[in-house]
């Protein structure tokens, strides 16, 4: 992905900035310009916490070219404790142990790099919550 395309999303990919509709309180990640629940156009920005719950999941065994050499890896939809849902990899856990309802925490990780000379894209992946 060309550098400008990833750069303009750093508030979201690096800091998990989400938005809350001032009209109906619905939360969005990434932020939107129009609320799809109440058509509101006023939002407040907030930083999500790192906690969430696995809503569904799979194991990718035949990835696209950008993820060559990384399979198998798990991907899931995470319902963040702060409202929005997001799709991301679930890492540092045996693939067969991932379950719907599993509590996870987001960690800062490399998402992918464009070839050997492109920008490295950073973001967040989920790891099982262990205390």
């Amino acid at each position: 992905m060309p550098s400008a395309r990833s750069w303009r999303a750093y508030p979201q990919t690096y800091r998990l900035e989400a938005s809350r509709c001032s009209g109906c309180q619905k939360t969005f990640f990434p932020p939107r310009q129009v609320c799809n629940a109440c058509s509101g156009r006023e939002f407040e920005t907030f930083r999500m916490g790192y906690g969430g719950t696995v809503v569904t999941h799979t194991v990718i065994r035949t990835p696209g070219d950008q993820f060559q050499g990384e399979a198998p890896f798990a991907v899931g939809i995470i319902a963040m404790d702060d409202g929005p849902k997001m799709t991301t990899q679930i890492v540092d856990v045996p693939l067969e142990e991932i379950r719907i309802g599993m509590k996870v925490k987001l960690e800062f990780r490399r998402m992918y790099a464009e070839g050997h000379d492109g920008v490295i894209e950073y973001g967040h992946k989920a790891v099982p919550l262990r205390e």
Partner: peptide, 19 residues
Amino acid sequence: KWEGTCGVTFPGLYAMMAV
């Protein structure tokens, strides 16, 4: 931007619906 960058594929999206 919000699905593809984590490596999920189309079989992966439908697999998550299946799960």
